[in-house]
């Protein structure tokens, strides 16, 4: 046992260097952490999003924690909405084959002539961004994707961020966890 102790001491000295370096690094880190200790969460910047469909396929959750969000204030409330209707829809009625959304998660409600409201039924939304492309192409771009934090597990490395082709995923502060479109035309939401 004594023999072992001696060896241990020698090894301890040898390895103390490595461990010390790691501790030093973390200490330096800790001192900067004090400045801005807020917890980071994942969010995607809708202005960078390229609607590639990976939010629907890559999230560890099924369905994805990314959902479509509607900035109603940007919406034209049109009767003919290409976020809602497929391009080339046979007829403009609300049957499923005419809808852009593969899961029928957009609900269309008549408000008054000639306005219609479009609401995302979040439990049905899979975050595929198909409607987002439609809305961006033909409409005002009021539909966009966001990580919904009531679902997001906040993985240490977001599986979508790892493969997002537009690098639209960013870590944002948990106190400002959304980057919404159309908020006072100021664009950087949680980015700044």
């Amino acid at each position: 046992m004594k023999n072992d102790d001696k060896k241990t001491k020698a090894r301890r000295r040898f390895l103390a260097g490595g461990l010390g370096a790691a501790a030093l690094g973390a200490l330096a880190q800790g001192s900067t952490a004090g400045r801005r200790a807020d917890r980071p969460v994942w969010q995607l910047d809708p202005y960078l999003c390229s609607q590639c469909g990976r939010c629907a396929t890559e999230c560890v959750l099924k369905p994805s924690a990314v959902k479509c969000v509607h900035a109603y204030a940007m919406c034209g409330y049109c009767e003919l909405c290409f976020g809602y209707f497929l391009p080339g829809a046979r007829s403009l009625d609300e049957s499923a084959e005419n809808q852009t959304c593969p899961t029928g998660a957009i609900r269309r409600r008549f408000i008054e002539e000639p306005y219609f409201e479009y609401v995302i039924d979040e439990p049905l939304c899979i975050g595929c961004a198909k409607c987002v492309t439609g809305c961006n192409t033909f409409g005002n771009g009021s539909l966009f994707l966001q990580v919904r934090h009531d679902r997001c597990l906040n993985c240490n490395e977001c599986a979508i961020a790892a493969v997002c082709p537009a690098d639209a995923f960013v870590r944002v502060s948990a106190s400002r966890p959304y980057i919404f479109k159309g908020e006072n035309d100021s664009t950087s939401g949680g980015l700044s």
Binding site: Q51, C52, G53, R54, A56, T57, P87, G88, T100, P102, C128, A129, K130, C131, T133, G134, T137, V163
Partner: peptide, 18 residues
């Protein structure tokens, strides 16, 4: 894996026919 394949968007919004 990601430098090889898996490059399709199954939810593509296509206006190609127009």
């Amino acid at each position: 894996r990601y430098s090889e394949g898996a490059h399709m968007n199954p939810y593509e919004y296509s206006i190609e026919e127009f």
